[in-house]
Design a protein around this nucleic acid. Structure first.
Lengths: 338, 338
DNA sequence: CTGTTAGCGCATTCAG
DNA sequence: CTGAATGCGCTAACAG
């Protein structure tokens, strides 16, 4: 690592001013094609790379964005991340990937760090923050898009999958199959999508003119082990239970494991429905009936919305032509609940 | 977005010089605890957040790192990413996640972008770059750690899973079970780990005093569809084939699908072995015999190695106490090849 | 213990 | 078409 070549080195070597170099760097007019070519050649020869950080200091735009997710290794978020990163890259941005590991303190910390890094915007997935904290975060950042969470106040973009509708469809499917005692392993109580899914679960009962026992709903960590334990508890407390709706497919896999441990057949003894349609859902035994949300598309659109917020012309900054994107999920019927 | 609070605003408001503010910001000595507290209070009151980018311009350290992977949504890399991000966060760094989407041009492009962003170091996973390009990349960046790839020249850190050994163990397992015609869906020919696994595959035959037909080895995209098609071609060209070793578990899933389509039973008619032990491996039918590499640990150690390279004292910069980390994989025997 | 001077690498504004 | 001066927000190296 010898010292870096700067714009001054290029200017000196090319016998021009730094301004001329700057102009060719940014493809601005006002440079004869002769000098432009010459400067280009010198840039190549010296292997010069402009410093985005020096540039950012003056332009106030860093060309970097933040993407905050609870856990990248969760297939749901890794797909969202892939979609988001793809769009960002196409527009010349880089993105900081931040894992909160389901921890609100850590979420606050990464958001602070992103602020100090002066990112141009943030896509915040499944924020577990309280309303007031979230508002403060939104206020600090130049542009924010929330994924799978809504916020009344503030100029936020929102992109989400209609979780309520998905959960309702899943529950309705079970109800129509004749199930009346349906457990719900509902994921983290602090999660917005969990709350939405609970709503949908209830709505399905209401719409069918049936009632449910609130005890059938139980929160759990959104992972296999959480699903395993909750299913165990639920089946123990309610032996009459014939169906389980799960917060996500990982939780459903845990439920499947518990059923296997207990010698219960799926779907004959207990029907199981998951959420998300992650890759393994179709490949396990029995194949999982689940709710599929367009995850990659969600990431794509969230990022696109963020970029559109960043790049609005100042005079149309108040328009907010489309500030909320809602993607519809669909029920995928497989063997675990037919 | 009103104008940002700067260090000058804080200094003015607190009736001190910017240097004093800078000192309390960086916890440097030389400030009375009285003024320190006072300045702290003003910082809080104004909601001041130091600009990491202005700071980086003078200190030459941005506190950012790059993590380049072929595909985040591949469970292998999403686990590596999680491990790497965890360590980086713990040390106060942020990481740019970059997907190459298996494309070398794009890999070059993101590396260039990372350079312009002046990252302090890069973890580069499964680089598909030619040796000369890779050397150029390594030369430009202050610190580089390669994952699953080696490079003779240059001061690079290396962290890898011993793919050759893993592939040999898998092949040996099949050989010992009596298989003699073993297909190998070997993944991308440009991938280093593919080459290593081919080596291991061969080594197992050699060690057993047996021979193989080079036609049994066929490259393919490292995804389900690639595995599906390659298995089809292999089973078509070599009907006597009784076992399939696959580049990774996704490829193995594709192979499983092909077997099902063809009415072949696994493992009775065809034994299948995968690689990586991704979450679904244990959960599909039949459960996949596979090679497990410590993915999260790989990400962790790679990032740790990178940070140790970044933070060496200048006078011990040549020592390179531990520049290569090799993690051992293990054979996980399940039903698909027992 | 505290402040002053300088400059990191670049783009913006204004003159040539 | 080109260049000189200026400053972005911060810290390093000195002074006091």
């Amino acid at each position: 690592m010898t010292k870096r070549v700067t714009i001054n080195d290029v200017a000196r070597e090319a016998n021009v001013s730094t301004m001329t170099v700057s102009r060719v760097l940014n493809d601005k007019e006002g440079v004869s094609s002769a000098t432009r070519q010459h400067v280009q050649a010198v840039i190549e020869r010296l292997g010069y790379r402009p410093s985005n950080i020096a540039r950012g200091l003056v332009t106030k735009r860093t060309g970097t964005l933040g993407l905050v997710v609870p856990d990248v290794s969760n297939p749901f978020f890794s797909e969202v991340a892939r979609g988001a990163e793809h769009v960002a890259y196409a527009e010349g941005y880089n993105v900081f990937l931040c894992n909160t590991e389901e921890d609100t303190e850590r979420e606050l910390a990464v958001l602070k760090s992103l602020d100090e890094k002066r990112v141009d915007g943030v896509v915040l997935c499944s924020s577990r923050l309280e309303e007031s904290d979230l508002e403060a975060v939104v206020a600090r950042h130049p542009a924010v898009v929330l994924v799978n969470r809504r916020l009344e106040s503030g100029n936020v973009g929102v992109a989400m999958i209609n979780d309520e509708r998905g959960a309702q469809a899943a529950t309705q499917h079970l109800l129509q199959a004749g199930h009346r005692v349906i457990g719900f392993s509902a994921g983290p109580s602090t999660s917005h999508s969990s709350r939405q899914r609970v709503k949908g679960y209830r709505a399905a009962f209401t719409a069918a003119g049936l009632s449910y026992d609130p005890g059938w709903i139980r929160h759990c960590p959104p992972i296999v082990e959480g699903g395993r334990q909750t299913a165990q508890a639920l089946l123990n407390d309610y032996p009459e239970l014939t169906a389980l709706f799960c917060y996500n497919d990982l939780v459903a896999v845990g439920a499947l494991q518990t059923c296997a441990d207990l010698g219960l057949r799926v779907p004959e003894d207990v029907a199981v429905v998951g959420c998300d349609d992650i890759p393994l859902a179709a490949l396990i035994t029995p194949p999982l009936t689940t709710i599929r949300g367009p995850r990659y598309e969600l990431g794509r659109q969230a990022m696109q919305l963020l970029l559109s917020k960043i790049n609005v012309c100042p005079d149309e900054t108040d328009q907010n032509p489309c500030t909320e994107i809602v993607l519809q999920p669909e029920l995928v019927v497989r063997a675990s609940a037919s």
